[in-house]
Amino acid sequence: MFRAIISRIRQGHRTMPYPKAPLQMPDRFRGYPVVSTLAQSAEQHDETAECPYGAFTASGGGCLDMGKCLFCAECPAGDIQFTTDYQLAVTDRDHLLVRPGSEHHHARPLTPDLRRMFGRSLKFREVSAGGCNACEADTNVLSTIGWDLGRFGIQFVASPRHADGLWVTGPVTENMAQALLTTYEAIPAPKIVVACGACAINGGPYIDSPRVRNGADSLVPVDLYIPGCPPHPATILDGLLRILDKLR
């Protein structure tokens, strides 16, 4: 008992001050992309270079789909620079498309009536539908004392009946499609759906594999897209706080 108390004092209070104070990201972190105009980089642009996941299209001045992008350390498409800006989550699929000079979109708050219902208590039921356990792990980490998701009234619960929303990770494998739908149906309306990670948005590294359905919105309507492979916990929390209008 006394040992535990002494330990508690030694370990200290470790919940991070975010969102009151900014977060420090590692300098090699790959966040919001900068797509340079092809006109500027036409000399270096290698016509044969292309993204194996179809995230980058060169036509029309260049466009990067953050929903398909795995934020690789060496972008095979060539013209992409990644900043350390972790604020990537959006509420519209189209807002994941980044073009030269395009506006940096953020997740929009839920409608006022949903905010009235979920603003102080938002519970999610998580379903891993082919996820590799990285998105799952970095979702889980939000509930640890470092991030303390509970202070925002957000919690992951054991039963869909207790949930206000579905949290999807993974590309939605054929073998999980039915279980995902059943879980969605078991959540009482009104409900929201979060697609967490590149797999859940569009299939990620497994896009177009015959054994996957290329993401959650092939089966259920998605309200929040959180890009990354996997998304940093800060990216996930940013999206959650924005839909609850707790971050502007």
Partner: peptide, 19 residues
């Protein structure tokens, strides 16, 4: 098990692929 099956080994035939 089998719920997480993404067809990795079947997809590797003819590889290595860019993915």
């Amino acid at each position: 098990l089998g719920y997480q099956h993404r067809g990795i080994e079947a997809g590797l035939v003819g590889g290595p692929h860019p993915r």
